[in-house]
Amino acid sequence: MNIVILSRNANLYSTARLIEEGQKKGHKVEVIDPLKCDIIIEKEKPTIYFNDRYLDYVDAIIPRIGASVTFFGCAVVRQFEMMGVFTTVTSDAIIRSRDKLRSFQRLSKAGIGMPKTVFTNYSRDIEQVLSHVGGAPVIIKLLEGTQGLGVVLAETKNAAESVLEAFNGLQARALVQEYISEAKGADLRALVVDGQVVGAMKRQGKEGEFRSNLHRGGSASIIKLNHDELKVAMNAARALKLPVCGVDMLQSARGPLLLEVNSTPGLEGIEGATGRNIAKSIITYIERNKK
């Protein structure tokens, strides 16, 4: 098969591992920067032009599109879909997962447990907003934040008011979320491929840090998910129509609570923590579905 990885850097761990596993299984794997593609829209024959050639020979794509290039990156994925090319994640699913508010609404409708969350249109009644999530401390998240950026822990009512007023002044939309103290700065990341959990790790934030992201100095270790945690991960992937994704959860006194679903999860942390060959699972998923 001719497999294209849509990535801006072939040297990134996740991209390099997918190349390695694809080539091991005898496929031709190519990395293409989606921002350097031209989308050719014409009657009956949509195509993509890249580096002096038409990409009409591609069998499958693996989108590895960063949040900052979602709009054009998803336009390229959509064009491949119009050409009948198989994709591990559809353009609609990526857009859906990148919109935190939209994804939370869908996940809530699917009956998946989450921390109490409030979204308001620049409300000045901040005390009322805080009461909806049980009062301070609270987590305040920018809708567009990734990798722990744009996430603030407000430990008091005054701190929450200051943060929300600052965000409102910048016209930056934010979610206010219940703080789960019993999680103690840790969360779970489950990697789902083709509807099944193929690896899971527990991420622990460094001392004094409530965010557990590995990019922010957190550590990771392998964990075996219980029945409820497996169910949340698989149901969340199904609700957002993401065959390949990372599902982040908190362990709470009332069971697992979903934090976020990532449509292009990194492989380095979870392969390192679990010893599982996640990249191979993704290539196998393409083979199974392309056939």
Rank of each mutant, 00 (worst) to 15 (best):
K24I: 13
E81M: 02
K109S: 09
R98C: 07
G113D: 12
I39N: 05
A186V: 01
A16W: 01
N213G: 08
Y179V: 02
H132A: 12
I140G: 07
E165G: 01
F167I: 00
P115Q: 02
H215F: 11
P243C: 10
H27R: 07
C74H: 01
Q171W: 04
R254L: 07
K109E: 15
H132D: 01
K184Y: 02
D52M: 04
E260T: 08
P34V: 07
D194P: 02
G269F: 07
N11F: 08
I278V: 15
Y54P: 01
S103A: 15
I41Y: 09
L101I: 14
L18Y: 07
V192Q: 10
A190H: 10
V232F: 12
R8T: 15
I283E: 06
E260W: 07
I278W: 01
N121Q: 03
M82L: 14
V232R: 13
T284G: 01
G111K: 05
S131D: 14
Q196A: 13
L258K: 09
A200N: 11
T264Y: 00
E155H: 01
I270L: 03
E268L: 11
A236M: 11
A233H: 11
A253I: 09
L142I: 00
G113M: 10
L149Q: 14
V197W: 10
A253M: 11
K45I: 11
R102Y: 12
S181T: 03
V31D: 08
S162W: 02
D56V: 02
R288S: 12
K36D: 09
E268Q: 14
I40F: 09
Q23F: 00
A159H: 10
K45W: 06
N226V: 10
V133Q: 02
Y179T: 02
A160C: 03
M234V: 15
K202R: 15
P137K: 01
N226D: 15
D38A: 13
L267A: 05
T117P: 01
